[in-house]
Design a protein around this nucleic acid. Structure first.
Lengths: 133, 133
DNA sequence: GACAGATATCGATGGATGTCAATGCGCAGG
DNA sequence: CCTGCGCATTGACATCCATCGATATCTGTC
């Protein structure tokens, strides 16, 4: 499981709002101030990267879109192969990546496998981008 | 330029809320309902993928974090090489990718190049994930 | 104008990734 | 039990990508 991010940690975004009158280019030869705040750890960056990589593929983006746009917010593989114009193994591969990233949930009912969105996953990822604004 | 997404189009997310009593596995032999809503186009998926790929790298995530956590919301290359433990050409390469994706803004002042967040970029990307909820 | 420092670009290389064909596995029906 | 169907897994292949060393470009200085 990928823990689906954990709000409250160092994130990104500040959406442009420079309070300091940019005193950059100090006279001591340095170009700008060291940093100030701790920013994001390498571990957290690695974990978030795994989730962002999962949706950073056009076909996987469409998969998630198809599922979320589906009637019962779920879909089986057979309904996803045609609109993406991909082979069944490839779709299954992409779905596995999304499941491993904690974005999709897989439930097998009889012969079919139904994929649905994990409730807070995408919102949590979106929170990382808007965090600390 | 990458257009920075355009809210109002088909996005993702629905955050789990199955109103229909999942009448799946219809008796006609099909597994589930065809789809219902148009979902996301291939073109839009490709465009969004470019932006998500840009931040789907641990080092680039840290770069954005470092810049947004910086004092004046901007930083030059020399301040970004150490915390990432990467060579200067590599950092410059990552920054170029973020600029090309429309996430960072580059401004050269004298000898130094200052990178800052493009105001609405991350929020726009986040909106894609929470859209249509 | 020559020089030094900061940054960008180029070429090469090892590793990650998307795609497919072939195959295996589990479930339902006869 | 055997067959058909939906899906997952494997192996192979081509491509992309992150990283580095070397080098080019630009800017301010002496």
């Amino acid at each position: 499981m990928t823990t689906i991010s954990e709000p409250g940690t160092a994130g990104l975004a500040a959406t442009a709002s420079a309070p300091a009158p940019l005193d950059s280019a100090t006279d001591d030869g340095s170009c700008c101030v060291p940093s100030g705040t701790p920013a994001m750890s390498a571990d957290r960056a690695e974990a978030l990267s795994r989730q962002f990589k999962a949706i950073a593929d056009p076909n996987r983006l469409r998969l998630v879109s198809l599922i979320s746009a589906s009637a019962a917010n779920e879909a089986c593989v057979c309904d996803l192969t045609e609109p993406l114009d991909l082979g069944q193994p490839t779709v299954s591969h992409h779905l596995k990546i999304l499941v491993d990233a904690g974005i999709l949930h897989r439930e097998k009912r009889g012969v079919w496998a139904y994929y649905s969105l994990v409730p807070g996953a995408l919102n949590s990822l979106a929170g990382v981008l808007t965090e600390a604004r």
